[in-house]
Amino acid sequence: MGEDRLRARLAAEGLDPSSWGNGPFDHYGEHRHPYDKVLVAAAGSITFHLPELGSDVTLEAGDRLELPEGTLHGADVGADGVTCLEAHLPGGTFGAAPRHDPGWGKVKSE
């Protein structure tokens, strides 16, 4: 599913996503946000590290991750770089745990 279709699907949920990208193997140190965040990979891949949960979540094109406010996370971009769509919601909109939805943006026939 292309970026425009992913953006339209998020917009249908009332979200207004922005787009960002990074080159291969870029790294984000651990940090937190005071808002809930929706991330959808549009191209490439990125692995989010969730140290307080002892887990990692890898997003590939079409995968979605919801991070509740205050979730400690860092990330490493994959070998092909990454393009993500990101939208913010008021803190407390999501439950307490991150939610990974692999294949969220894939059409059934894909």
Results as ranks from 00 to 15, higher is better:
K108W: 06
G105T: 00
S19H: 04
G74H: 00
A79R: 13
L67G: 09
H100I: 00
A41S: 13
G29K: 07
Y28I: 14
T83K: 07
G23D: 12
L67S: 08
W104G: 03
F48W: 12
H88T: 15
H88N: 15
A96V: 15
N22S: 10
A42E: 02
K108E: 13
C84M: 13
L89E: 05
D56N: 05
L59G: 00
P102I: 06
L6D: 03
L59E: 00
S19L: 06
G2S: 09
H31V: 11
E3R: 11
H27V: 10
G14K: 12
H31G: 09
D16R: 15
R7T: 13
D101T: 12
H49E: 01
G70A: 12
L72E: 12
S45F: 05
L6G: 00
V82G: 02
K106W: 07
H88P: 04
G78D: 03
G103H: 08
W20D: 14
A75K: 01
G74W: 06
T93R: 15
S55R: 11
L10T: 01
T58Q: 08
P51W: 14
H31M: 07
A97R: 12
L72K: 02
F25Y: 08
S45L: 03
A75N: 01
D101N: 05
H31Y: 01
A12P: 11
M1Y: 07
W20E: 10
